[in-house]
Design a protein around this nucleic acid. Sequence first.
DNA 1: CTGTTAGCGCCTTCAT
DNA 2: ATGAAGGCGCTAACAG
Lengths: 343, 343
Amino acid sequence: MVTMLDVSLRAGVSKATVSRVLNGTGQVKESTRNQVFKAMEELEYRPNFLARSLANRTSNSIGLVVSSFDGFYFGCLLQQAARRAELHGKQLIVTDGHDTPVREELAVQMLADRRCDAIILYTRFMSEEAILQLIDATPMPLIVINRQLFQARDKCVFFEQQEAAFQAVDYLVTQGHRAIACITAPIHTPTGQARLMGYRKALEKHGIGWDAAKVKYGDSAMTGGYTLCQQMLQQGVTFSALFAGNDDMALGAAKAIRQAGLRIPQDISLFGFDDAPSAQWLEPGLSTVYLPIDSMITTAIDQAIKLVNSEPIAAIPPFTGTLVLRESVAPGPGTRLSTAPAR
Amino acid sequence: MVTMLDVSLRAGVSKATVSRVLNGTGQVKESTRNQVFKAMEELEYRPNFLARSLANRTSNSIGLVVSSFDGFYFGCLLQQAARRAELHGKQLIVTDGHDTPVREELAVQMLADRRCDAIILYTRFMSEEAILQLIDATPMPLIVINRQLFQARDKCVFFEQQEAAFQAVDYLVTQGHRAIACITAPIHTPTGQARLMGYRKALEKHGIGWDAAKVKYGDSAMTGGYTLCQQMLQQGVTFSALFAGNDDMALGAAKAIRQAGLRIPQDISLFGFDDAPSAQWLEPGLSTVYLPIDSMITTAIDQAIKLVNSEPIAAIPPFTGTLVLRESVAPGPGTRLSTAPAR
DNA sequence: CTGTTAGCGCCTTCAT
DNA sequence: ATGAAGGCGCTAACAG
């Protein structure tokens, strides 16, 4: 391992000078600078990052922890995060929380130990208090995605889950559906709760009663969507539309629906959530809600960078969803009502 | 930031002693050990990872670079990699190569600079020479996934792409298909080449001529599969089966096929590659080839760990695919031939 | 412009 | 069993 000392000796200067040309700090005579460069090349010198970070108290990197690596969703997130971090000249370091709150917290600590300049946390499972506590136990800026924390509002980047779900279900109702089933996203997560609440509120708005039989608690996997939908069908639960907590489950549900001899959307309308790539290729195209994950992670990173540079920051407005209407929803049995409203 | 010195002062011992209890090295009297622990807790001491790594010359982590973060494929890879690394007590650090050979190389260097104990490289784009060169320019063990390097055979974990593709197409032929179209995986990657070669060999084996019109060069995205398939259909290319370079493109193609008024599998049989989660939920279920990515990354990490511990290693046998037969393939027009072979 | 001298926080002989 | 001292590789005043 060739060190700075080796280079300095070879170039006939001191370590300090080598350091200067390396970092472009201070004044160095053109000629000696060149000598140093030459020495570096000849020796194939590569600065030791650890030593550097230790001395600098900054590793020039930002850490990202996600609950889990699977799903298209985190793929997008990571991809965009990497690009954005790079744009700021920072290296992105990613870790996952193995889908458990404890590991999520450990992951953050690990990144903190590594002296990342800032940390971004996308947690599905940690409790609010735990997060808050983590925030001020962490010496570097910590931005939280997918959570709305009032005590740390300007460190949050979140999405109006409930509102988006509300809109989706509201849309279903205005299309004439009243018997709307729901397969929830994991109900032990705030996200799952919020989406379900959106469903419930939309029903309430239209005076539709809550029917426990129509609500199944899902796990976000395609298989779950399939199984639960199949269950409902077999149990004789009747519904003209199904709102799935995410697109993956909608995909699974679609198969169950067809296997039951039903058609989409003629017999049952289907609505998803996330706008996964495959949503577009399902047949019929799956109507779903688009969640601007790219913008969210971008914003989170930008905010983190600002904090690192001690620039002033402002709270980030909530992100909102957009309904992506494709062909999986048909007018429901109650259509007549909305088409020709009573006077 | 509380340091080891703070702890030592608080506990009334020297830094050396603190270091000893921290690492469990050397002999420390029970009582003083407890004092140190108490001091650490009271001060909420957290060792500085960088300093530690610098002194130890090991960061107790293994680096992983993937070409890109998107696709279910890398999700699995990352997930399993994280688990396996943890099992070995190592932290996993992930970076992506932004889908370009240069960045892939840079990513490896960056991880090397961070003094990872070992590095695992999944490259889609780097040339063989570049990889080889990188291997011996990197001071720590470097394992390469998805590439077969004869000059570094024991550092490679790869999959028999060509053979798997061959089997898939061979299967199609034995099912009675002779007009088999193909949408390739990215043709500038070894993977894309190998899969196409498998297709070609299978045709050759059965004396089926190469028809350029039946081969479209894809990009691995669903949209590409859709567009290219649509093109072929519109150009009047006739085929009874389509072999797609991956499941995503197969999904896209499926839609194009149906939009053309054709049925799967009655009119056109479809075969994918990868066994993506959605393959199972397509209707009919997509026949495809399973690629044991989990085992591959696991093996890669284990091999890396062995190298780190300077244990003896052996070359890893190639991984092979498995045909996953679902419902997207129907007997082709030539079925009679194979059912009742001429004597 | 350049060299000297201290650290950064931790580990590790070498004495005691 | 414990402390003192030097080193890991690099940066950052402070003198010249």
